[in-house]
Design a protein around this nucleic acid. Structure first.
Lengths: 192, 192
DNA sequence: TTTTCTTGATTGACGAGTCAATAAAGAACG
DNA sequence: CGTTCTTTATTGACTCGTCAATCAAGAAAA
């Protein structure tokens, strides 16, 4: 059985299984054993490749973040013009892939973990910084000096509406539309 | 020793201890034993009064929500005029008492629990409905038919900025000011 | 045969919930 | 007023289960 080069395959399988298991349980209260079984291996092997539970979690968070990042980059590539780029960023945050139960569960528990895990906190800050600078980049030409403040509000609104939609399907008629409406109001009001 | 009428005292002590313990650990991964010890009693007594761990958690959530509700009601009582009342609602959401680590931890874990616990979900919806209707009540005279949509955005922004400030002290220069700025932009843009 | 992959078995710890037993405060009773 | 009964308060000890992490050992490639 021992084919060589199993490590990356096993790690990927474990990451996926971790996300699925967190989604199934809704919390980080998942066992290495369950994750390993879902990934089709023994728990000892999971420990062998990751060292411990927390490292498995972090890998799952990183993976979720990198998927999101890729989605944003893709959407940005397809958009032209500042306005369109802003819309792309907003739309991407509310893609259906972000509302799969596993993804929601990972995000929520990510927030919880960020309170106590320095690594999780760092990952979260990276996400926030990236979103913020993406927004500022395309807001600057539109609102000038107000870009930073507006970006804070847009980012906050994205997170808040995501949270609300994730927990209570309410407002799902289109959260993205709400963010864009708010943005439009900011642009209009700023221009007097 | 058995003084009568201990039940309400014990329950209150357990609720407080639960919140403190969740704050200390950062998650719901707290033991009944630890909570009970913090409240100065045996774990058996905690079970006696609450029945189980989940019920202790729910009592802690309810307590946190009722504190918040009382704060809002107090602030609303002191405010006069629609604009002032809206400001009161927003300000209250960002009171320093809401940023004590225990309170943050309870809220974050509340969100996580709402995914799987019907009771937690119900509590969360009550909070959201109350906030929404409070906002609509004072927005209607200002923006008419747009009140519902604006309320959704303001509520989302409150939750989102709270989340961001709670996790990374960033933006703490004043989240409430950001919400009010956004609100102002909505009013201005709506009036053309 | 050395390295990579893999697991069953084990260890050591911890935790939720139950239970039987103790203790006191009041109520009923003679 | 004593005495007995009942209810409330309280805990230590115990059960039963779970789980993270380790380890020794086997199997297959190179």
């Amino acid at each position: 059985m021992p084919k060589l080069g199993m490590e990356p395959i096993r790690r990927a399988a474990l990451v996926k299984a971790t996300i699925d298991e967190i989604g199934a349980v809704g919390s980080l209260d998942v066992t290495v054993g369950k994750i390993a079984k879902r990934a089709g291996m023994s728990s000892a092997l999971a420990h062998h490749y990751f060292g411990g539970k927390e490292q498995i979690f972090l890998a799952a968070m990183r993976h979720t973040l990198s998927l999101y990042k890729a989605e944003v980059l893709g959407a940005l590539g397809r958009a032209s013009g500042h306005r369109a780029r802003l819309e792309a960023i907003v739309q991407t945050s509310f893609t259906s892939s972000n509302f799969r139960p596993e993804v929601i569960a990972v995000w929520l528990n990510f927030y919880v973990l960020a309170q106590t895990s320095a690594d999780a906190d760092q990952l979260l800050r990276i996400y926030q910084r990236r979103l913020h600078s993406n927004l500022v980049h395309d807001l600057r030409p539109l609102v000038g000096a107000r870009a930073v403040d507006v970006a804070i509000r847009v980012a906050g609104l994205i997170d808040g509406l995501y949270l609300r939609q994730a927990l209570t399907g309410v407002g799902s008629d289109d959260a993205a539309a709400h963010v864009l409406a708010s943005l439009k109001a900011e642009l209009k009001a700023g221009a007097q």
